[in-house]
Simulated assay, not measured.
Amino acid sequence: MAHIAILSLPEAGHINPTLPIARELVARGHRVSCPAAPSVADRIRETGAEVLRYEPRPSEPIVIDGMEAAARATLALLQDLEHVLPQIEARYAGDRPDLIVNDWLAWAGPMLAAKWGVPRIQSWSAHAASEGYDFGRFVVAMFEASPIKTQFDDLLATVLDKHGIPPLELHDFYRPAEFNLVYQPRSFHVHNDTFDDRYAFVGPTRPSDPRGWTPPGRPLVYVSLGTIISDPAFFRACIQAFTGRHYRVVLSVGPDIDPTAFEPLPANIEAHHQVPQPAVLAHTDVFVTHAGMNSAMEALAAAVPMVAVPTTPEQRTTADRITQLGLGRSLAPAEATPDRLRDAVRELLDDAATKQRLRAMRRDVRDAGGAPRAADAIEARLPPR
């Protein structure tokens, strides 16, 4: 069978959609290899895929709270790549894959595919690029106004030259590949009339499973900003908003915040580093979320209304779509006061029309096909052997 390389970033929102696909491809008899940082190696290994371990560049997380921070985060992405690309290429020495599937921010994918002349599929854990939605144009414009543009351009030229990779520009990393996997139903995606048969809208690949977690009670409000954003003040606002309410509240505060820092907590609220999100969402009545794509899709798979509190441009696009389609509410971070959070949750708990629209969207999610359809699309594009 074929050798398929899956390249992603080690963050949950990027790697989570690919794990069920890796498992499905392995079950079909394919060999799947995944370059990986130690932090995610065990999760990949559980799928049956082969882990090609690399050591990541030591770095501090960047809070994206403005255009300049977004530019610095993009430069950091290239600096990370400069560090790990020699390791990844060495792992594939004499053992090149037949096809590469890469996350849209795993730039080693387009670089190595161009160098090796192997086909590539882009994995969109965010909104996919098309003629109608070009996030890359925004990134390029952002760098035009940034004082670190020259530093980025010089480093990109150095990486390409050092590894013998054909010329690539920043915008190229945000353009669609010859084929693209999108982890949304088409009905949710922005500008969904601008996509052609180069795209498979497979929806979320991790279905909700109520058997994986026991809720503390119902109704249940689940609060999470994902695994990257650390904002203790936001969680304190949620505690103030929801203390003593008739519903139970589960806070997933992320790996960088100590849940005990919020103690003593009221009887109806509990805090954890992380929880099994798809299982929690299967029991959730309202989800307060940063509107990361992975989280939003898992909520739609469980038909859970959302209070979106986005902090990045991509999250704001998702939050806008949630409100446009009547699937929840959206608050800017500065608007997420205890009173506004409490009101938004109360409205959604009692909103029958929103729940009806969510049930229709859940049908679209299920019809999209998930990991099996993604695996079908990958197999259809394997080169003949």
Rank of each mutant, 00 (worst) to 15 (best):
A70P: 03
A71T: 04
V51Y: 05
D42M: 13
R53L: 14
A71V: 08
R72K: 10
P58N: 12
G66R: 01
I64T: 02
E50H: 13
G66E: 01
E50Y: 10
I64L: 07
I44M: 03
P61A: 07
R45P: 08
P56W: 01
T47I: 07
A73D: 10
E68I: 02
A69W: 04
R45A: 15
D65M: 10
L52K: 12
A41Y: 06
D42R: 15
T47K: 01
R43H: 07
A49I: 03
A70V: 03
G48K: 04
V40W: 00
Y54N: 01
V63H: 11
D65Q: 12
R72C: 07
G48T: 06
E46P: 06
T47H: 02
T47N: 04
V51C: 07
S39C: 10
R57C: 08
D65R: 12
T47Q: 03
S39F: 08
I64W: 01
I62M: 03
M67F: 06
R57M: 14
A73W: 05
E46K: 15
G66Q: 02
A71H: 01
V63N: 11
I44W: 00
R57K: 14
A71C: 13
I44S: 00
G48E: 05
E46I: 08
V63S: 13
R43F: 01
T47P: 02
E55R: 15
Y54R: 02
S39H: 08
E50V: 15
A71G: 08
A73R: 08
R53D: 05
P61H: 06
S59A: 15
P58G: 12
R53Y: 04
E60K: 14
E50F: 09
A70T: 05
E68D: 12
A71R: 01
E60S: 15
M67I: 08
A73C: 07
R72L: 13
R72I: 04
E68N: 05
P58M: 13
D65W: 05
A70H: 09
I62L: 09
D42W: 11
R72V: 04
E55F: 12
L52F: 07
R57E: 09
E68W: 02
R43C: 01
G66V: 01
E46Q: 15
S39G: 10
E60C: 08
V40G: 00
V51R: 03
T47M: 04
V40S: 00
P56G: 03
S59E: 14
Y54K: 01
A70E: 10
P56H: 04
T47F: 02
E50I: 15
D65H: 10
A73S: 11
E50S: 14
D65Y: 06
L52Y: 04
E46N: 11
V40L: 03
G48Q: 06
E50G: 11
I62W: 00
G48M: 07
P61N: 06
R57P: 05
S39A: 15
Y54V: 02
R43L: 05
I62A: 02
G66N: 03
M67T: 08
S59D: 14
D42T: 13
A71D: 04
S59L: 13
Y54D: 01
R45F: 12
R53M: 12
D65A: 14
R53T: 11
S39T: 13
A49S: 07
D65I: 06
D42E: 15
G66A: 03
D42K: 13
E68G: 02
M67Y: 05
V63L: 14
E46G: 09
R45K: 15
E50P: 10
